[in-house]
Write a protein that binds this DNA or RNA. Structure first.
Lengths: 205, 205
DNA sequence: GTAACTGTTCAACAAAGTGTTGGTTAACAC
DNA sequence: GTGTTAACCAACACTTTGTTGAACAGTTAC
């Protein structure tokens, strides 16, 4: 059943939870979300199957646990993003600030590479992608958007926010799935370049 | 096992396949990809469980079948998209042409609403999203992009294409998940408006 | 140190789903 | 109308699931 599990706080408990979460990310990355059984998971984690049920009610519960852990870590990033002076973009000064924020974002993503490639990979969890988009959208709306748009919400404004959130996440995902990987600095430069264009502009560095 | 199934072409066969595909879309939409068993599926489809295995080797095989059916239908759209004069965007004439192509895209999406909301919804198939992005990217690269970028591929060009593909698909998904739904015409107007902006430009209709 | 907790382990269980089979019935194509 | 073939049905061994109770062992508090 999907009852809520109270997470124990004992060195043994933390150890078991970590073993399970690590094995989970590994298996999702290799076989996808429903490409393995709980039995497979506990064997890889070197944890008794009964122990799994002591911590999590189901695979979905463990998934939720992993995703929440990640999303909680985003809040620091959000504060930095909130400082971007969107209305004054285009000057050399603001662009270099945006660049530094993008570097932070890509660095953060790189640090969570295993989890992200697994959960956002070809057999990952589509709702995790939605949650990330929602988080980014909310951040953009609450912290960056001009007062006038925030108060006077129209479909256009919402789609505008969704448009850029999806675009940026899309680039991040392309980057993650690319084995010959650019550095966070290179990606920030690329992204600043692309975002300053509008559709149809010539592509130049 | 995942051996290939030769699809029979008999009135009875086509009927069974359709019943199974329809029930599949319905169940994926309601409970997500692994929220139901094959037994559930065949009961809803009013088809014997053995019949399922006569047509499909697994749930994933049926999923692949549904996705392919949809992706094959995109080719007409691709030809229209290929006619967009990207290098000359910005004029009133070209913008109205782009508008009409967007209307076609949103209309096409609306016609496949059930399948798309199910497979791209919160418990859908993330790899389907990737396949659509890939298809759109390939179309953009092969047909729209200037000769100079097509030949002289750089990471920037690839990310550029991915950026816009993700952005547009993101807007389409927002639209699908929005119950108070704009018309395809309204969406085309919105999208043309957004795409002509660059990040930081004031939002105006 | 030692005693009281409490998480882990192990074996066992019924229940459900899976993938396959062989025999029967009925719809289809020609 | 007749041969073909898909759908149906019951049964099968097998795997996974979620739960249980008792024994064991790491942790915490005194």
């Amino acid at each position: 059943m999907s009852r809520t599990i109270e997470r124990k706080d004992d060195r043994r408990s933390r150890r078991s939870r970590k073993m399970l979460a690590d094995a989970f990310v590994e298996l999702v990355g290799e076989r996808g979300l429903d490409g393995f059984s709980i039995t497979d998971l506990t064997e890889l984690a070197n944890v008794n199957r009964g122990t799994f049920y002591g911590h999590f009610s189901s695979k979905e519960d463990l998934l939720e646990y992993c995703e929440s852990e990640f999303l909680n870590g985003i809040s620091e990033l959000e504060e930095r993003i909130a400082q971007v002076p969107v209305t004054e973009l285009g000057t050399e000064e603001t662009d270099s600030f945006v660049h530094s924020v993008f570097v932070e974002i890509f660095t953060f993503v790189e640090e969570h590479e295993a989890l992200l490639t697994a959960l956002l990979g070809p057999k990952g969890d589509i709702s995790f992608e939605h949650r990330i988009i929602d988080t980014v959208c909310t951040t953009l709306i609450d912290k960056i958007l001009n007062e006038q748009y925030r108060v006077n919400r129209t479909p256009l404004v919402d789609y505008y926010v969704g448009y850029y959130s999806s675009a940026i996440l899309g680039v991040v995902l392309m980057w993650l799935n690319n084995e010959s990987r650019e550095t966070p600095e290179e990606m920030a430069t690329i992204l600043v370049g692309i975002a300053s264009l509008s559709l149809g502009d010539p592509i130049v560095l």
